[in-house]
Design a protein around this nucleic acid. Structure first.
Length: 528
RNA sequence: GGUGCUAUCGUCUAGUGGCCUAGGACAACGGCCUCUCACGCCGUAAACCCCGGUUCGAGUCCGGGUAGCACUACCA
């Protein structure tokens, strides 16, 4: 009997959700959806010292923005956190009593013991003995319920001495972990230490205990997590056995890590600041240390682009397909096509994906998204239809919505200065005279003819727009043998302020006759 | 140091013993288009970590090296 697929994403609220974490969440989500199973979200806040306010909201909001849906546990619903499901609470800090029960079970069955060694004593031990490890070889020399008499232990407990509960790892046993991505991994229990399962200081379990208990109670079928957990997987297997849950132990899949784009090592928060790209989905204001980290959303990324980009960092189907919708990913994703080796985080490809998705959006949608940028540049209440038209002219040259401003600013504000390089190359001695003549020519064009054009096709069947103004200007250039390039580039500089931008008649069309003529006059007077 | 994982163009990857004179994409470079800058299109350069073995035949299987990464906390 196949059991229902239930996966979980279980982040710690210790800061912004790292992009590697986002990918882990995504793979879990894709796997759950593909198998018609459940995606759970649980908060692992068992380290009270590392808690960062706002991190939980941040994580849930980020997943919501990316379209990674949560079926059970904590999720965002219209900006509010809600808890759904019958296996709650879904914050580990709210599950203390549950863990007490299971800590006791391990203690009673002899799979765990109480240890009174203080952090300072352990620290001293580690400096005294190189490679000290709290395990079968050393536990007899330490201060714990295995070496102390029952009376002594009870007395210390009654006195309120701080203690931890440690897992009693049986030595010299080959522990087999079956990994869906890597196959069979065998580790000898001798290299495992007696991990702390519970600490009385804050009355909370550690990750290892909480994770096993919760996954069991929440009926998790597959644990899909980062490769950094592979070394502790044998410990987790041992814990399932100690609890007597070996037969319902979840399947494991350890994902390859996301690496630094340059140099070596795991991608870290610092790399973003250092290399100038976001490593977080959303901008994050850390209330604990006051730092601000940039996010993909605020940088102008589309969530679909981030998803597509991330999905391909460590997974690839056979074939050459690069663009995937979420639904396609759900259909095609599979754990056995996840690569085993770490992937360097190539930010350039991310930009390319965003470019692709930007082209897919309609001009009207982009116009809507462009409004905040316009506003930031002093353009209030723009005509959406005109903005959409402008966007249609420049969108293929940008990767991000805010970049539209750099490409289209001259449509909204007349140039106040002229690009030096463009002038040097394109503004000739005779240009002022050309522009004077052009001005006279254009002044005679009736207002109603200004925007006129007709659509035709060239010999290859491509659509071509034939503008009325073209018919006015070209014969004049030809008759006087001025040179099309010389005149048009000078004209362009008058309108744009530089030698760039869309086709000239598209610009005059949007600017209108009056504004076009005004810019030419200004330029003639301003350019030396 | 110990343990584990991994290893194809600069990067992400395809490749599951003969379809591989190794395919695609990003980036780079060149060309075309063109009034400009882009986009687009076309093209160029660019890789099987090394050494053995198995086999008629190895990028693909095995062994050994080497390298990279992860873990080695009362953090997750």
């Amino acid at each position: 009997m196949e059991r229902r697929v239930r996966v979980r994403f279980a982040p710690s609220p210790t800061g912004a959700l790292h992009i590697g974490g986002v990918r882990t969440a995504l793979y879990n989500y894709l796997f759950a959806r593909q198998h018609g199973g459940d995606m759970l979200l649980r908060i692992e806040d068992t380290d009270s010292t590392r808690f960062v306010p706002g991190a939980e909201e941040y994580i849930l909001e980020a997943l919501d923005w990316l379209g990674i849906g949560i079926d059970e546990g904590l999720r965002m619903n219209n900006g509010k956190i809600e808890a759904v499901g019958v296996h709650g609470p879904y914050r580990q800090s709210e599950r203390r009593e549950i863990y007490h029960t299971y800590v006791k079970q391990l203690l009673d069955s002899g799979h765990a013991y109480i240890a009174f060694d203080t952090p300072e004593e352990l620290e001293a031990k580690r400096t005294e003995i190189a490679n000290f490890q709290y395990d079968a070889r050393t536990r007899e020399q330490m201060c714990n319920s295995l070496t102390l008499s029952k009376e002594e232990v009870d007395a210390r407990l009654a006195r309120g001495d701080k203690y931890v509960v440690r897992f009693k790892v049986e030595p010299n046993e080959d522990v087999h972990v079956h990994d869906l991505i890597r196959g069979e991994v065998v580790i000898n229990s001798n290299i495992l230490d007696d991990k702390v399962l519970y600490k009385s200081a804050d009355d909370l379990p550690t990750y290892h205990l909480a994770n096993i208990v919760d996954d069991h109670l929440m009926e998790v079928s597959h644990v899909i997590r980062g490769e950094e957990w592979l070394p502790s997987a044998p410990l987790h297997v041992l814990l399932y056995r100690a609890f007597g849950w070996a037969d319902t132990m979840p399947e494991f899949a350890h994902l390859p890590l996301l690496l630094k784009p340059d140099g070596n090592g795991k991608l870290s928060k610092r790399d973003g600041d250092r290399l100038g790209f976001p490593v977080f989905p959303l901008e994050f204001h850390n209330q604990k240390d006051g730092t601000v980290s940039s996010g993909y959303r605020e940088s102008g990324y589309f969530p679909e682009a981030v998803i597509n980009f991330l999905a391909l960092l460590g997974w690839h189907n056979t074939g050459d397909q690069e663009m995937f919708t979420m639904n396609e990913l759900i259909q095609q994703f599979s754990l056995d096509r996840v690569s085993k080796s770490g992937a360097k985080f190539d930010f350039e490809k991310g930009k390319w994906f965003n470019h692709q998705y930007l082209q897919l959006h309609s001009n009207e949608e982009l116009a809507e998204l462009f409004v905040p940028t316009l506003k930031a540049n002093g353009i209030e209440n723009p005509d959406k239809a005109i903005v959409a038209k402008i966007i249609s002219l420049v969108k293929d040259r940008v990767n991000f919505v805010p970049e539209l401003w750099e490409q289209a600013n001259f449509f909204f504000t007349a140039p106040t200065e002229y690009d030096e390089k463009s002038l040097k190359k394109r503004w000739k001695e005779e240009s002022p005279r050309h522009m004077q003549e052009l001005l006279a020519l254009l002044e005679n064009v009736p207002e109603e003819d200004w925007h006129k054009n007709e659509q035709t096709t060239d010999e290859n069947g491509n659509a071509v727009t034939r503008w009325h103004l073209d018919n006015v200007v070209m014969p004049w250039i030809e008759k006087n043998e001025y040179g099309v390039g010389i005149v048009m580039n000078a004209f362009r500089i008058c309108l744009v302020g530089a030698a760039r931008g869309p086709h000239i008649w598209n610009i005059t069309d949007i600017l209108g006759k009056e504004e076009t003529l005004r810019r030419v006059r200004t330029a003639i007077n301003s350019i030396q």
